[in-house]
Design a protein around this nucleic acid. Structure first.
Length: 838
RNA sequence: GCGAAAGUGGCGGAACUGGCAGACGCGCCGGAUUUAGGAUCCGGUGGCCGCGAGGCUGUGGGGGUUCAAAUCCCCCCUUUCGCACCA
């Protein structure tokens, strides 16, 4: 008998898979298709055991589906643009491309050593021109349809690094790199009009029945639809300028006793010019606007405001109300102006208290009529209107409908829907991203780069200082060009795209990764998509997954794809923790899969990560748990390896079996059932593994009895009873096949030793044998008043009436019935008896 | 503050439509084997009481429904995650 030597086995099979291109997949097949996708990787350098968990989960699903007869596409690629490469370039004087490609090479090796069954021939890297070409192509299609546009917007600006920062790069109001206070600055930026699809993205959520509820809730909140109305208050003065406000509570408008403008509201500057002391006015506005941006956004700031001195007319009451500028009003939501209803909005209430503004109750709850003197907080619920002229007495909901109608008729407002979702700012002043394919011409304006001039390739910048604007702006050969329309001198756009653009459609490119004429052939995508199973980290619950849903719809409208939703089923996998914390280089708690594989092999690592918890849950890394998995695989090896040659020629189990053999067959069958069910539709990989462990435990006992187990080495040459050999072969083959998705290398090796030379790719998922008889007897617990007092061993299928009789004559049961009156006896579907007494 | 999810042995976790709580693994204890250790194999392992048979108790806490509750309902506590002035 040989030792279990994972290093030898794993190398052998990985080579064979590569040579035979086992996991490459043809364009079409007569089999049903299955698209198994895991989120592609950012090539940061080294994958740790937390990153690879997701790839293992996907691999289990892909390998199982192949064995179940599906034509499986299981691709992988690299989300290869992004800031870290540029930072590495600054720090280590390496070109981002070299850094990225080196990392990809290393990480690809890691995945191959793990034995993940990818169709590597379809590998993509977003930083290569043959990929980002199509980012540019899609961008231009969106530009043509008005879905990509340019406008000024407020961004985070670091005055020391002289660059724009993403929201994630602003930590407590400071630059993550140099800790300078971040300013708000208005810049021309490119946006994608995701808000045009807001309603579709929201409605589509209801049809995502195979996504985690948590993710759907997050997306709903992110989109944040609110129904209400826009109403105009007229600013009093020489010219009656309208101030439009958005409200979801038009029913409270009779209680609107002031107007609040965001510091960014366009009217603020206009009002400033007519103020008594314009400069002091502007200074106060400026102070609000430069208040810590993050704090303002999180509401972690004292509510402040000041009276502009101007008045506006409430269109319903006809009264003039004060117009204030307030720091807590958001400039980029709704109209940037709100009506202040202190009696029915908590924020307005606090504001009114602070500045002694009038409070007027206009809605009263049905239960208790609130009077003003009792007010300690705003009443924000619905109720019946009071002090609202002809609307008084109406319930809030009805009043909103009627008042919206009245506002529309009087042309002072209309019903409106607002979304929290904002258009997606994709401009990045960075080098390592997709160049935006636009040319700025003085006479023609924004001119798209013609399709036949794509891709606009990144020039070879070599000096990365980390300062200044977009590095592309400093490359004259890149910037200076001619206008495609009029031929005069023109400038290229120097912003690059957010890398979330790259990841919004990569799953389509896998279907046709080498296409040189289009992002992909719609036929290929029609065949493979939508993605049947998608697995990745929950941190992408909103960003990537909502952007992809958006891109999917845009591509549908472009006639490129035919479905509305790209991912049918989503699994969000939990993180791997070490010492209670997420693994990270800076914490120094990363576990390198290569270290683990060197000691225990890839199969052990895979098995451990699949067994220790359900895929959705986070897991705490333990070395002892890993050893346990190694122990199990060694145990399988010690059992199967010496037995394989002895049972490989055994026939089918006959009817002529003894009790032990029949029980063994039942266990085999039961394990097939449990593992199949746990893998699909549930993806309960941990319980599937425990079912396999039980089978192995039973096999040890069985072999022990049959005198052919690991403990009976001396009998290796002795004969095994033919019936026993047949039962063993059946059990062992099922075991090996069921293990194959989890631990493919050891499974391949044992499968070969069982006499199959074509590999597991040619093997089929084991089927339940319905001819295997169930057990002759079952154990039925008997309860007295809900407590188990005895267990009866009875023939299978014994009637409930007989069971009741059996229970009542049982001596144990009788002992507990002494001196009591039986009220009734319940027999639960032949599984349990409960005697109820008084 | 709002919303969602989750609380089960020393630990990770099982438990189908309410029906034997703790599968499987880790750890621990004992035994076999071994010069010894490791490895391996076998057995035990929620808590309390009992020599034992056995009894009591037990799924965050408190109520409730039910013959029967980890599972269903109500209240509370804790943890995690998400959102966070969205008018």
């Amino acid at each position: 008998m040989s030792e279990y030597s994972p290093q030898t086995i794993e190398k052998k099979w990985q080579q064979r898979w590569a040579e035979r291109q086992t996991f490459e997949v043809a364009a079409e097949s007569s089999k049903p298709k299955f698209y198994c996708l895991v989120m592609f990787a950012y090539p940061s350098g080294h994958a740790h055991v937390g990153h690879v968990r997701n790839y293992m989960i996907g691999d289990v699903v892909a390998r199982m589906k192949r064995m179940q007869g599906y034509h499986v596409i299981h691709p992988f690629g690299w989300d290869a643009f992004g800031l870290p490469a540029e930072n590495a370039a600054i720090q280590n004087k390496v070109h981002p491309r070299a850094w990225t490609l080196d990392n990809i090479a290393h990480m690809k090796g890691q995945l191959q050593r793990l034995g993940i069954s990818y169709a590597w021939e379809r590998e993509i890297a977003t930083c290569l021109p043959n990929y980002y070409h199509w980012n540019q192509w899609i961008f231009l299609k969106m530009f043509e349809r008005g879905l990509a546009y340019r406008r000024r917007s407020t961004v985070n600006w670091c005055p020391s690094c002289l660059t724009v920062l993403a929201n994630e790069q602003v930590i407590e109001g400071q630059c993550w790199r140099c800790s300078s206070e971040v300013d708000a600055r208005a810049l021309e930026q490119w946006f994608l009009r995701i808000t045009a699809y807001a309603d579709q993205l929201l409605d589509g959520i209801d049809r995502l029945t195979e996504w985690p509820e948590k993710v759907l809730t997050m997306q709903r909140n992110w989109i944040g639809r609110s129904e209400g109305a826009r109403v105009q208050f007229l600013l009093t003065g020489d010219t009656a300028v309208p101030i439009e406000v958005f409200t979801t509570r038009l029913d409270t408008i009779y209680g609107a006793t002031f107007i609040l403008l965001a510091p960014e509201h366009p009217l603020v500057e206009e009002i400033a010019t007519t103020a008594n002391e314009p400069e002091a006015f502007r200074e106060r506005v400026r102070r609000f606007r430069t208040q810590d941006r993050t704090a303002r956004l999180t509401g972690d700031i004292e509510k402040e405001g000041f009276d502009t001195g101007r008045r506006a007319t409430n269109p319903f009451t006809g009264e003039d109300v004060q117009v204030w500028v307030a720091n807590f009003v958001l400039g980029d939501y709704g109209t940037g102006a709100v009506m202040g209803v202190p009696a029915h909005d908590q924020r307005d209430f606090e504001f009114a208290q602070k500045y002694n503004l009038p409070v007027r109750v206009v809605v009263q709850s049905d239960e208790d009529a609130t009077s003003l003197s009792e007010f300690e907080e705003a009443y924000v619920g619905s109720g019946r209107l009071v002090a609202s002229e002809e609307f008084s007495g109406l319930p809030s909901a009805e009043a909103r409908v009627l008042m919206t109608q009245v506002a529309t008729d009087r042309k002072i407002g209309e019903g409106a829907v607002q979304y929290r979702l904002k258009d997606w700012g994709i401009s990045r002043q960075r080098y390592w991203g997709t160049p935006i394919p636009i040319i700025h011409c003085e006479s023609c304006g924004l001119v798209p780069v013609p399709y036949d001039k794509l891709p606009v390739e990144l020039p070879d910048v070599t000096a990365f200082s980390g300062r200044g604007d977009s590095p592309l702006a400093q490359v004259p050969e890149f910037v200076n060009t001619t206008c495609p329309t009029c031929g005069t001198d023109a400038r290229r756009e120097t912003d690059t795209m957010d890398t979330f653009v790259d990841s919004s459609w990569y799953y389509y490119r896998y279907c046709d990764p080498h296409n040189k004429a289009l992002p992909f052939d719609p036929e290929a995508v029609r065949y493979w998509t939508p993605v049947d199973f998608y697995s990745g980290g929950v941190e992408h619950a909103i960003l990537h997954l909502i952007y992809s849903r958006f891109f999917c719809r845009v591509m549908r409208d472009l006639g490129l794809v035919e479905h509305d939703e790209p991912f049918t089923r989503l699994l969000t996998q939990g993180m791997v923790l070490k010492d209670g914390a997420v693994m990270s280089k800076s914490k120094g708690n990363v576990v390198d899969p290569d270290d683990m594989m060197a000691t225990y092999g890839a199969d052990t690592l895979r098995l451990y990560e699949m067994f220790v918890a359900p895929p959705e849950k986070e897991i705490e890394w333990t070395d002892t748990g890993l050893e346990g998995s190694f122990r199990f695989l060694s145990r399988v090896w010690r059992l199967v390896e010496p037995l394989a040659a002895r049972v490989r020629d055994a026939g089918q189990p006959s009817a002529n079996l003894d009790d032990t053999e029949r029980a063994m067959r039942r266990k085999t069958n039961e394990t097939i059932h449990r593992v199949s069910r746990d893998l699909d539709p549930r993806v309960h990989l941990n319980t599937a593994v425990s079912a396999l462990m039980e089978l192995v435990n039973d096999l040890y006992v069985f072999c022990d009895k049959a005198g052919c187990g690991p403990r009976a080495r001396q009998s290796e040459t002795s004969d095994i009873r033919p019936e026993t050999a047949a039962v063993l072969r059946e059990a062992i083959e099922a075991l090996v096949l069921l293990m194959a998705p989890f631990t493919p290398h050891i499974a391949e090796e044992l499968w070969e030793r069982l006499g199959y030379s074509e590999g597991l790719i040619a093997a089929q998922w084991p089927k339940i044998d319905s001819s295997v008889a169930g057990p002759d007897t079952v154990v039925v617990p008997v309860q007295v008043n809900g407590k188990v007092r005895a267990r009866l061993t009875v023939d299978t299928g014994r009637s409930d009436a007989d069971l009741e009789a059996d229970a009542l004559v049982d001596p144990q049961v009788q002992g507990h019935l002494a001196g009591k009156t039986i009220v009734k006896v319940i027999v639960a579907r032949g599984r349990l008896v409960n005697v109820v007494t008084k």
